[in-house]
Amino acid sequence: MRHSPTLPAGHHLFRQGEAFRTLFMVHSGSIKTYRDLGDGRSQVLGFYLPGDLLGLEGMYPGRHCQSAAVLESSSVCRLSLRQLEMLPASANRIQLRLLDLASRELSNAMGRDLERCVESRMAEFLLDYGKRMADRGWSAVAYQLAMSRRDMGSYLGMAPETVSRCLRRLTHLGLVSFDRRAVTIHDPDRLRSVSVEGTAALH
């Protein structure tokens, strides 16, 4: 895979509607994907960390149905469509890895239940992000969020004001604390209860 130079925040790897030509794996930094809704608004679909693969959604239709933008200074590795077509049939490890990443992305997309209460959605998001950080060798309970609260709200189906209100409530209860975008989870067990039971776990 070809390694890119450092990309600045705001740089697009691909845009919605463009022909699929390349898969991208995050080497450093973080990327968000989003979809234009056609009325001037957009919806954030996912956040990608080092080791995550982007672009799989464009493989079958041959055209991307979402855009991918850099959140912070990042670098990626590229695997072109031509390189994919040239993979020998014996490259089972690569094929299995691609299937694993594709199924994980589908599972994450299907697992977001926007009908649950906002505290439940936020708790699950913070815990899941911490797990993803831990999978990469970092702390699961003290980490930096690269996305804005607006992007977080778009992903979770909340207005930015609701995000701020929800975070203040979780902070007031002593479950988490924030210093700008730095997150510290103080009570992961209770936060996990909130993610499952919603506001009932807060009483």
Rank of each mutant, 00 (worst) to 15 (best):
S4V: 01
T6E: 14
P8G: 02
P8K: 03
G10E: 08
H11I: 00
H12Q: 09
L13W: 01
F14C: 04
F14D: 00
R15M: 04
G17E: 11
R21L: 00
T22Y: 01
F24Y: 14
V26L: 04
H27K: 12
K32S: 13
R35V: 15
G38R: 15
G40D: 08
S42K: 13
Q43G: 08
V44C: 12
L45T: 13
F47S: 09
L49D: 12
G51K: 09
D52E: 13
L53R: 00
E57N: 14
M59C: 06
R63Q: 14
R63V: 13
S67N: 09
V70S: 02
L71R: 06
E72F: 02
L81F: 04
M86P: 00
M86L: 09
L87A: 08
A89T: 08
S90P: 03
I94P: 01
I94M: 05
L96V: 06
L98H: 00
L106G: 06
R112K: 13
R116I: 02
C117H: 13
S120N: 02
R121L: 06
F125D: 12
F125P: 09
L127R: 05
L127S: 06
G130M: 03
S139Y: 10
A146C: 06
M147L: 14
R149W: 07
R150C: 07
M152A: 05
G153D: 02
G153Q: 03
Y155C: 10
L156V: 09
G157S: 05
A159I: 03
V163Y: 03
L167C: 06
L170A: 05
L170H: 02
T171S: 12
H172M: 05
T184Y: 04
H186E: 05
P188C: 01
D189H: 08
S193R: 15
S193L: 15
V196S: 13
E197A: 13
T199W: 00
